[in-house]
Design a protein around this nucleic acid. Sequence first.
DNA 1: CAAAAACATTGAACTAGTTCAATAACTGTG
DNA 2: CACAGTTATTGAACTAGTTCAATGTTTTTG
Lengths: 194, 194
Amino acid sequence: MPYTLLKENIDKHIQFSDSEFETYSHFFYPKTISKKDFLLRQGDVCRFEGFVTKGCFRVYTIDNDGNENVLYFAVEDWWVTDIDSFTNQAPALLSIQALEDSEVLLINKKDKELLYQQMPKVEKLFRIMSQKTLVSLQRRLIRNHCYTADERYLHFIKTYPKIAQKLTNLQIAAYLGISHEFVSKIRKKIASKK
Amino acid sequence: MPYTLLKENIDKHIQFSDSEFETYSHFFYPKTISKKDFLLRQGDVCRFEGFVTKGCFRVYTIDNDGNENVLYFAVEDWWVTDIDSFTNQAPALLSIQALEDSEVLLINKKDKELLYQQMPKVEKLFRIMSQKTLVSLQRRLIRNHCYTADERYLHFIKTYPKIAQKLTNLQIAAYLGISHEFVSKIRKKIASKK
DNA sequence: CAAAAACATTGAACTAGTTCAATAACTGTG
DNA sequence: CACAGTTATTGAACTAGTTCAATGTTTTTG
């Protein structure tokens, strides 16, 4: 079942034969992780790339003033890693924490390199995935500039209704870059308009 | 000379033999572009990926309210394209305009695909480049949340002193996501502190 | 080289979003 | 099931950044 999700994930980007997928998927091993536990802590080296098959994670960083900043939330079918830390085996800026009991498929650094060697097609797969992620990050950056907090909140809950459901105001606020009190006020404003 | 820059650009990410570089570079053709001319206009399909060998570009979008939003500035050694539009041959959200007389090396869509086929190693190259870009975008997103406008301005001129020099307040403002009047006020504040 | 156009500076009035503090409502756990 | 801890709501005072308008400065172009 978790591997079925992985297959479906690939199918969105590229065509793999059954035997190719066989090879690919054998590099990944499952891991369960309990609510509130960490897959990665800021400062540690990120040893994995992870594909979420169940549950929900927050990928975030704490800045010098102690403010929490959520880069993204990852549910089923999302990838989680600190790419920079993983690629360079340097201390991570990001923390990755399970918001509920979750399951991931992990691949470690050495195996990822081996996989690239054995299956050059995986380069293309990750090239395509990186580029898609890049596009969505570019759009988010632009939205952050030209949308008000209200608009960004509405866009978020409309775009990710299932994720939004699972989150507290505090977490949504940390993602949108606004105070949680203001999220409360936005909600009130919206409710009164209906 | 322009091709020397392209070689140096690759060397930062991956090792190419001379003959590999030969093959690679032959897919690119030079183009000069005059100040204020457009390499790409919002709404058109982006037919190229471009490597800047001289001059300066702004890559931006105009939102529904008519506000200009600069995604990034590209000088020598930077790449310019609307990846989304280029990949899917769909109308571009981005415009790319020369801020001064400039030169680029371009590769078009068909040749890019041919290049990927002929040289799988190019997949790795662009996978690596995309991931590095992704990391810097993630960091910028976080900075936008936890830095004040003053800090973001200072960070920008410190990180890209050569680019900043070439830009007007208006352009820097459109990049930082603040009003150009406020850029003026930030400058004044900084000057008085010295 | 003069006129026009674009850009920069400044101040005053404003507003979106913050901060703080107090209270209320949940949620998890012994 | 009670209570400790976390989360949500609300209002009042505040502030970072905007908007508008007026003036000055630089750049472009006929």
